[in-house]
Design a protein around this nucleic acid. Structure first.
Lengths: 230, 230
DNA sequence: CCAAAAGTGTTGAGCTTACACCCATGT
DNA sequence: ACATGGGTGTAAGCTCAACACTTTTGG
């Protein structure tokens, strides 16, 4: 059904940048290619767009395939289209980035796909232009997390303020003042005290909070400063 | 050269959102289609990606074709890929947005393409999903202009602070306090007094400033608040 | 001399930062 | 009891928002 007769058709791929938080540092879920080209190298999870599939649906399909998760935070990042970015054949890649709770993914899927969580900060080289994609994704994550309450997507349902602070420190690779951070976060009114305490701690047990979903939805698009000078 | 044999190839288009500033309101450069489908309706300027052409290069080609301008501010916005977004044939559209000085474009090109500057705020309906594209572009413009010194791209080389203020008021569709705005802008150190005055004014002539290019480049990626509460 | 727009100064409020102390827990 | 990490209070400085007055120009 080529109804715009004189135009060239191109391969369109989707690549997914999957961020997780390990408690100390930001992690990236990547696959080790067991096919050519670049067999044995690390790569983002991706796939081609199906003929009868919206881009977002494709991204969700690919994310589900690797993680077994649905209903996760996904955002379109950017489209990469340099003529020679894929040495096999010209391919346009629409890149998405996802934030998931690292403990929720399906371990079996990850094993089957030969995937692994790697450190974002000390990551190995990635194939093609995936390196650039990750750089831009990190920039976007920093941008977004400073202005919107996005970080919660990386944490479990119930979390403590010190955990949240560690997360922000990992995202921006900087230390924050405990007292000021706590006050700023609580002042948003997004956190609800569950009454429970974090039993894992060896010292004083920290309060477990959960997100106030309604407030979260309604305030998500507001412009805030979660971070001091960036 | 189909070397990924079993995958579908799709049409890939580029659409351009072109913003200009008329002195009072933000304008959009659009074309009136003289071809089917949707003949006679307003549409963004666009075209298909050439086989041997990077996406950014394609966007610059399309922008040059309509405006006669090179070296303008262009940024990739997002890619639209709903299956039925183009009724003729499935087409992925990579959307760019450009900021130009409205007085610099080539009038002849605009006439040839049956194009016109329309009001952004009171715009007529656009074809396909171009309406949504413009919405998202405006959101992005507001986002970006609040944090980065991007507005200058819409003004002439030399401009006055009141002009700049009118621009920001147009972008955010709100009134700003003259004194606070002036102070905030001057405190960035981005403006250089040219020594000249705006001779067009009927009353007190305002000082003409120009951008300090070096400072602009070096501070462009800083996070700032140009605007009060959004 | 008057109207209209440009330029500048001040002040109070609120926010941010930097800092110190107390509490809970396990060893 | 002590080490470790969690929780809260406060004061100083700074930025921002709100506001009023003076200057320049053309008519």
């Amino acid at each position: 059904m080529n109804r715009y007769p004189h135009s060239t058709r191109l391969l369109v791929a989707i690549d997914c940048i999957i961020f997780g938080f390990g408690g100390e540092e930001i992690k990236l879920l990547v696959i080790k290619r067991n096919f050519e080209p670049e067999r044995g190298k690390w790569s983002l999870m991706g796939g081609f767009v199906n003929e009868e599939e919206d881009l977002e649906v494709g991204a969700e399909r690919i994310l589900f395939e690797l993680t077994g998760l649905n209903n996760i935070y996904v955002e379109q990042l950017q489209t990469f289209g340099k003529v020679n970015r894929d040495p096999v054949e010209r391919t346009i890649s629409v890149v998405f980035f996802a934030l998931i709770n690292i403990h929720n993914h399906d371990e079996e899927s990850v094993r089957v796909h030969n995937a692994a969580w790697i450190s974002l900060k000390n990551r190995p080289a990635l194939i093609f232009d995936h390196e650039k994609m990750v750089e831009i994704a990190l920039e976007r994550l920093r941008y977004k997390a400073a202005l919107h309450p996005i970080g919660f997507e990386l944490l479990p349902e119930k979390f403590t303020i010190p955990q949240l602070q560690k997360l922000y420190e990992a995202i921006y690779d900087m230390k924050l003042d405990r007292r000021n951070f706590s006050r700023k976060i609580l002042s948003t009114g997004l956190l609800v005290d569950t009454g429970e305490k974090n039993e894992n701690s060896a010292t004083k047990k920290a309060t477990l909070y959960r997100l106030d979903k309604e407030r979260y939805e309604s305030k998500f698009h507001a412009f805030w400063y979660f971070m001091p000078d960036l």
